[in-house]
Design a protein around this nucleic acid. Structure first.
Lengths: 208, 208
DNA sequence: GTCTATATGGGGATAGAC
DNA sequence: GTCTATCCCCATATAGAC
């Protein structure tokens, strides 16, 4: 009981501090102090600091992947033998992560940085979680855009992911730069903006 | 003479190591050892490690900003009183950075990470360098897309920057994932792909 | 300007009492 | 499971000889 609480507490605290200050910049001492725990608790519950990092990540990426697949399954069921529209495919990629942001404002900022983290193992965890989604999205887009060369489709998914990640990590900069004109509190609106932008990009005539 | 060489050598070495392993992960010891210098040289030439980081960044961002403005000036001169086409505006935003990548493959990977760096001061340097370009691009796009609400334009520039940065940091992942189908050696082709994708996104009808 | 030796502080991990 | 004391290593920065 108490063990579970301490463990969850460490995960929550680490997630917050990682998002605020970075993984390398946050010491085990910082985490245990903020969590009101003792220094050895991280090693007791997660073996190493790295084990804690891994646990912080996988706790969120599992449900995220699941939700994306659920949406894509649903859309495929709806259309029967027809192709799922591009907008819906992109929505399934974008919306679950933005909803996760609502539930937990810390994780995605952290996650966005991890995507290009210098530590190969950390990148591997993320990109590994993203891979199945990437290929599922690619296959669905091939059906929706039968004339588009496969390489072009993959490049465009890559750009879409970039737009999404940059929104995770830096949308507050946009709010600042725009003097508040760009509202970042309405998640549904942001999702719609990304979907509109990226769907148009995906459907643009290929130059090949 | 020798001083300049040592200094440049430290900058080059630091840039490479920062890109490969991260700023926090790279110690002054690592840098001076790899540069064939002595431990105190960084403090001698740059005062602190932070001074070195700053020098590594500003050495590249200055020329990058300059080149973007040159291109935009050129395009504005070409069209006289008409609006610069969206494609050209985006090209001026994208191409100089990808050309920088050709000259120096290390910097942009490093730079892409710095955009979302937990260290506020490092982020500030980057976003400060980007700000004038952002607003210039915004003003030009307002003329090219007179019906588009300003907030929507700014969001779409934000997505464009995201696609660009993700390409800086992660295009080798795309090559891997695609099994080599996506070729990352042809810079001109990548530039064209980003410009096509983002221009279409920018011109998509606004839902507002 | 170059370099060595060192000051000073913080890091992750663990032993072992409770 | 909890917690303290401690081991050992590595960080940045500097003093001072050359």
């Amino acid at each position: 009981m108490t063990g579970i609480t301490t463990k969850e507490n460490l995960l929550d605290t680490a997630e917050r501090l990682f998002a605020e200050s970075g993984v390398k910049e946050t010491s085990v001492r910082d985490i245990t102090k903020a969590a009101g725990s003792h220094l050895a608790s991280v090693n007791y519950h997660f073996n190493t600091k790295y084990g804690l990092i891994r646990a912080v990540i996988t706790r969120r990426t599992g449900p995220l992947k699941k939700r994306r697949f659920e949406l894509l399954d649903e859309y495929e069921a709806e259309v029967g033998d027809n192709a799922v529209p591009v907008e819906k495919i992109i929505y399934a990629l974008v919306a679950p992560s933005m909803e996760l942001y609502l539930e937990n404002p810390h994780f995605l900022r952290f996650a966005g940085r991890m995507v290009s983290d210098p530590d190969k193992e950390i990148r591997r965890i993320f990109l590994g979680e993203l891979d199945p989604v990437f290929f599922r999205v690619k296959d669905l887009l091939k059906r929706a855009l039968p004339e588009m060369p496969e390489a072009e489709i993959m490049w465009r998914i890559h750009f879409t992911i970039g737009a999404l990640i940059h929104t995770w990590t830096n949308h507050s900069d946009l709010e600042l730069r725009s003097g508040g004109v760009c509202d970042i509190t309405n998640e549904a609106e942001i999702i719609e903006r990304i979907v509109t932008f990226c769907s148009a990009g995906l459907k643009a005539p290929s130059s090949e």
